Amino acid sequence: MLQAREDVIHMLKTEKTKPEVLEAHYGSAAPESVLRVLHRDAILAQEKSIGEDVYEKPISELDRLEEKQKETYRRMLEQLLLAEKCHRRTVYELENEKHKHTDYMNKSDDFTNLLEQERER
């Protein structure tokens, strides 16, 4: 409908507009008839869209996007919790290895001291 109005305005503004062109396009060459045709087209366009809710599609898209975001957020939290669990386990294993190493070094020092004492005797 908007395009039709722009076409009429363009045709009326240009000097090349001949009555035959208007008549071929709108069924009449008189500008008054063209306006009546535009009015008729506007009424027909309104009748087509009476049952349509212009917000229905955007709202459904927004709802779909919101659900998708919630699902993505939930999966991200699961991955974050899994990474945290793995990190905790790694820290625990490193602490355990640190204690084992300390024990080994202490035993090694004790053994070295015993060997030195034996050698001195």
Rank of each mutant, 00 (worst) to 15 (best):
T102C: 04
E84Y: 01
E15F: 13
N113I: 05
N113Q: 11
E52R: 06
L12A: 05
Y104N: 06
H87D: 09
L44P: 02
V91T: 07
H87C: 13
M105V: 06
E93W: 00
H99L: 12
E95I: 08
E32C: 08
H101M: 09
S49R: 10
L44V: 09
N96A: 07
E56N: 10
L44Q: 03
L38Y: 00
H25G: 04
A83P: 00
R5G: 04
R75S: 10
K16I: 10
E78V: 04
K48G: 02
Y73R: 13
G27K: 00
H87Q: 14
H25T: 14
E97K: 14
P19L: 14
L12T: 01
E118V: 14
I50N: 03
L114P: 03
R74H: 11
E116T: 12
L80R: 03
E120Y: 08
L82C: 06
S60L: 12
L2R: 12
D109P: 04
K98N: 09
H87S: 11
R89F: 02
E118F: 13
M105T: 07
P31M: 09
R89M: 02
S28E: 12
E93S: 02
K18F: 04
L94N: 13
L2Q: 10
R119I: 14
E52C: 06
N113V: 06
V54Y: 02
D63W: 10
K98Q: 10
L94G: 07
V37H: 06
E120H: 12
T112R: 10
R40E: 01
G27A: 00
D53C: 05
L94I: 11
H101A: 13
L35I: 08
K57A: 15
Q117K: 15
K70W: 03
D110E: 05
E66N: 13
R40P: 00
Y55V: 15
D109V: 11
L22F: 01
M11V: 01
V37K: 08
L115I: 10
R88H: 05
M11D: 02
T112E: 15
Q69R: 08
R74S: 06
H10S: 15
N113C: 07
K98R: 15
A83Q: 07
K100S: 06
E78K: 03
R5S: 09
K48R: 03
K85Q: 04
A83T: 03
L80M: 03
T102L: 06
L115T: 08
N106H: 09
L22D: 00
P58N: 02
D103A: 12
Y92L: 14
